[in-house]
Write a protein that binds this DNA or RNA. Structure first.
Length: 621
RNA sequence: GCCGGUGUAGCUCAGCUGGCAGAGCAACUGUCUUGUAAACAGUAGGUCGUCGGUUCGAAUCCGACCACCGGCUCCA
């Protein structure tokens, strides 16, 4: 029941075995790295040390926390007397270059705990780390395999508690290969009850060229930012008057959604699902029965009073689908039941976490609940996964990783059921030859699950699909079917969402395609460009009529601008085709076709263009 | 929610230490009727996020709030 569909996922927060995930892995700042798996480890770790020295030069009374390498760079956390400014970063960079030029060797030594405490007597965070090390914890306060050797690395005047490894000396850091990127707040040890430190993020590469390439990649990601493209292409907006995290779909964005929903709706019908609808609110009693008012209340909005009765906006759809199941006595012959709905749910998200379309307060899941018998579980899981891959591939997403989450310490249900379900999930993943990771103990208390994440065109990972067992709700709602032996049995229940939420999926699609949607999804498939609005306007209108008749989505640019301006406008709107009409085309009953790629496909009869477009739409290319 | 930053025309952004609010694009009007990514000229457009304060005077300084951006935390 926890479709985290409207939620962000994607980035391992740190080297914890329990992959903690949130969105924007993408920007890639936080992925932890290990010395053995990352060729940049020494460089970035060393850059972090050099930065710490530079910061301490600037703030001799500053306190230092931790400073690991991360994907694409490094950071270091500081406790400083004042907030850092962008100018400070420039100053720190300058000092770093000076330290680098000094060619100071990184010197390793092992110290005993007493020595370490003396060395870092003015550094309370380091003292806490030393205490942790003495108890066999790593720098994040988690259990470590690495024994309790306490060591330091020293270069120039700066000595840091550190297990390394490092470069041989500071001048191995290319002075034009690194850059300090930003300052951000970060809680000491990631604990919101502990002090907020200042974290400086930096990036470091083996050469200026590599750095520039990385910066270009960032620029490219920014260019694809769905929030930017959403505005430029007039796809959606968020209105301050409506409220943050609540999405307004503009006609062009809504067009894409309608196409996606229609496609998916048809596919569901072909795959044995039945469509249902359910309301947006339900009585408090329902949510008490489901347990949401106990375990999910923090994410639910306050109750509304209707004639003295409390109602809640739904954070999930499951209780409603369960009511549909319960509206009849069910026979074993009726199963499986597969109820699907584009269900709009509302979840409270704290203001600081909202992000474009990917983390919102109201969203629509392509939700479904499958009720089945034990002997159907295997088949249903396999079908659900198969279906999910089919749908995602149809949208041009083809690079997947599966995450299997198994039984946590606190759980409900029969361990035998858990084992059976978990194995069914595992077999489904393996049958589809998907790369996968197992998150041992990472399942929800009510059942194991598969999360399917996709890598987009920029290699960024997004969680979309989820397939989850639920051993809790059937129990709470007393779901039954009558088995062959005339006895009531409890059905198995599976939640699943394929695209996740329409909002998030749309955000991912926008970024994946950089706004240049394939023809079948493009809200405007072609713009007709008459060279002269006066001379060719009438023919343009006729062409438009015929294209609309052929079910194509087109616009006519009847502005008084020159053709070049019209083309430019269509290009910027990423319209797949521009159909140029001048004297020659008008005489021949043709259109001159320019593709979004800039390619001039030349003049062709209108019918030829229609045939070409239809084939392309059919292929979802 | 927490730390830091930002908020000026529909969009992108200038506006130095307080002294009559600006540009480009878009829009509108006119001229041009055009051959594959921006014709030319003109017109109009603002409660400078909101509320309060300091000041003779606030876009500018101060405070609170709202929203957004980058992170952190959270996302059973």
């Amino acid at each position: 029941m926890t479709f985290t569909a409207g939620e962000a996922t994607g980035r391992k927060n740190r080297a914890s075995p329990q992959s903690r995930i949130c969105n924007r892995t993408c920007e890639g700042m936080i992925m932890p790295v290990r010395p053995d798996s990352d060729p940049y480890y020494r460089l970035r770790h060393s850059a972090a040390h050099v930065m710490a020295q530079a910061v301490l030069e600037l703030f001799p009374e500053g306190k230092i926390a931790i400073g690991p390498p991360i994907e694409d760079g490094f950071y270091y956390d500081f406790d400083l007397p004042r907030a850092l400014t962008p100018d400070d970063l420039i100053e720190i960079e300058t000092r770093m270059r000076r330290i680098i030029a000094g060619a100071h060797p990184f010197v390793y030594r092992v110290v005993d705990p007493g020595e370490a405490r003396a060395l870092f007597r003015d550094q309370p965070y380091k003292l806490e780390l030393i205490d942790g090390l003495a108890r066999g914890q790593d720098e994040y306060g988690e259990r470590s395999e690495a024994g309790t050797v306490i060591s330091t690395y020293k270069h120039d005047t700066f000595e840091d508690l550190c297990r390394g490894p490092h470069l041989a000396s500071t001048d191995q850091i290319p002075p034009d290969g690194f850059k300090l990127m930003s300052v951000a707040g970060a809680y000491w040890r990631g604990d919101s009850n502990r002090p907020m430190l200042q974290r400086i993020y930096g990036t470091a590469w083996n050469s200026k060229e590599e750095l520039e390439q990385y910066l270009w990649r960032l620029e490219e990601a920014r260019r694809r930012d769905h929030r930017v493209l959403g505005k430029e292409l007039d796809l959606f907006s968020v209105s301050e008057d409506v409220g943050p995290g609540l999405i307004l779909w503009h006609p062009k964005g809504a067009m894409i959604r309608v196409i996606a929903e229609d496609f998916s709706r048809q596919a569901h019908l072909e795959n044995g699902y039945e469509w249902v609808f359910s309301p947006h609110i339900g009585r408090a009693h329902l949510w008490e029965t489901s347990g949401h008012l106990h375990f999910y209340k923090e994410n639910m909005y306050a109750a509304m009073d209707i004639e003295g009765e409390e109602y809640y906006a739904k954070p999930m759809n499951c209780p409603f689908h369960i009511q549909i199941y319960k509206s009849h006595l069910r026979s074993y012959r009726d199963l499986p039941k597969r109820y699907a709905e584009y269900g709009t749910v509302y979840r409270y998200e704290r203001s600081g976490v909202l992000h474009g379309l990917t983390r919102v307060r109201g969203f629509t899941q392509d939700d479904a609940h499958i009720f089945c018998r034990a002997d159907q579980v295997e088949e249903e899981i396999s079908r659900a996964l198969d279906f999910s891959l089919y749908v995602l591939r149809s949208f041009g997403l083809s690079d997947f990783t599966a995450y299997l989450s198994t039984r946590p310490e606190k759980y409900v249900g029969d361990p035998a059921d858990w084992d059976m379900a978990t194995e069914a999930l595992r077999r489904a993943i393996e049958a589809h030859a998907l790369p996968y990771e197992v998150d041992e103990g990472g399942g929800a208390f009510y059942g194991p699950k598969i999360d399917l994440k996709v890598n987009d065109a920029l290699g960024r990972e997004w969680q979309l699909s989820t397939i989850q067992f639920d051993f809790n709700l059937p129990e709470r709602f007393g779901l039954e079917y009558i088995a062959e032996d005339s006895q009531p049995r409890r059905p198995y229940m599976v939640h699943r969402a394929l695209l996740g939420s329409m909002e998030r999926f749309f955000g991912v699609l926008i970024e994946h395609y950089a706004g240049a949607f394939p023809l079948w999804l493009a809200p405007v498939q072609a713009v007709i460009v008459p060279i002269s609005d006066e001379k060719h306007g009438a023919y343009a209108a006729e062409v438009a009529r015929q294209l609309k008749e052929a079910q194509l989505r087109i616009e006519v640019d009847l502005s008084k601008d020159r053709m070049q301006a019209k083309i430019r406008r269509a290009q910027l709107q990423k319209v797949p085709y521009m159909l140029i009409i001048g004297d020659r085309e008008q005489a021949a009953g043709a259109v001159a076709v320019r593709a979004r790629s800039g390619e001039d496909l030349g003049a062709m009869p209108l019918a030829a263009f229609i045939a070409r477009a239809r084939a392309e739409i059919e292929a979802k290319a």
